[in-house]
């Protein structure tokens, strides 16, 4: 009996270990390839680098990975801030109103959650272009916000529905307005759901590709995904530099994640509730 439980335990570890290796191997390949020379990558795909060569990192850095990261950071922070603020305000009103029109508005929000960005790519592009906001950070922050709001509103809505109303009633009796109640009572107690939404949207917008590809074409405003995609345009086929660029782009986020993974995972898990 004991032997059998042991065997089962080993089996379970084996399953998890196999998947872990499967997950880590490509990341390892990316790291190792960044240190190889072009010829080494292509002629000895399975070997370690012949020497610890950092030149690929230098070439990748010179392409502008640093500024791509800064752009991504700026766009992500701004859009997440807009999403959280506007969705929080809207979801609270929607969750607390009995009016019929509010139900319809909520359904409209859910409907917009289902609209894929490709569906509106052309009109959206023409609008941003017509508004002279191509190649500007604001030009991409606003669509990012607009497409992030529906999901976040739905998430907040569910949270606010379960929020204990007794606290709010007490504040209302003290003469607080709806806005005051929201900021003094509700916001301070909404930390976990805000963190969930913020992290989810941040990961999503940090990695967004399609809109950024269409709207951020100027090199100085490109975000990471478009910047990375641009590494293999017509004339550069520098695979070590591509892998080095991917490493530079990925590693800070990975380290941040590993350090803060407990909060990270707990926050994202809140989405499923």
């Amino acid at each position: 009996m004991n032997g059998r439980t042991r065997l089962v335990a080993i089996g379970m570890h084996l399953i998890l270990t196999v998947w872990t290796i499967f997950v880590v191997a490509p990341i390892g390949l990316m790291l190792i390839s960044a240190f190889k020379s072009q010829a080494e990558i292509f002629t000895k795909p399975l070997s370690l680098p012949g020497s610890l060569n950092l030149s690929a990192f230098q070439r990748a850095w010179n392409i502008g990975i640093g500024s791509f990261m800064l752009n991504s950071l700026l766009v992500t922070v701004l859009s997440v801030a807009v999403i959280i603020t506007t969705s929080g305000l809207a979801a609270y009103v929607l969750a607390r109103s009995e009016a019929k029109v509010m139900k319809w508005l909520y359904i409209l929000i859910i409907a917009s959650f289902a609209i894929p960005v490709q569906s509106v790519l052309v009109p959206l592009y023409q609008m941003v272009s017509g508004g002279h906001m191509l190649n500007s950070q604001l030009g991409i922050v606003l669509p990012y916000a607009a497409f992030g709001i529906p999901f976040t509103t739905v998430l907040f809505y569910a949270f606010f529905l379960e929020f204990p109303r007794e606290l709010e009633e007490a504040a209302r009796l003290d003469g607080c307005s709806r806005l005051q109640i929201f900021f003094r009572i509700v916001v301070p107690l909404s930390g976990p759901v805000v963190a969930s939404a913020a992290i989810f949207q941040a990961v999503f917008n940090w990695n967004e590709f399609l809109l950024a590809l269409m709207m951020l074409t100027e090199k100085s405003v490109r975000t990471l995904p478009v910047g990375i995609y641009g590494l293999t345009t017509q004339y550069s086929s520098d695979w070590p530099a591509i892998m080095a660029a991917l490493t530079i782009a990925t590693l800070p986020l990975l380290i941040l994640f590993i350090l803060a993974q407990r909060h990270f995972v707990r926050s994202l898990a809140g989405l499923g509730k």
Binding site: P225, I228, L246, A249
Partner: peptide, 10 residues
Amino acid sequence: FMPVIISSIA
């Protein structure tokens, strides 16, 4: 969980 946070382009 790690791959979740890596850009799909990368």
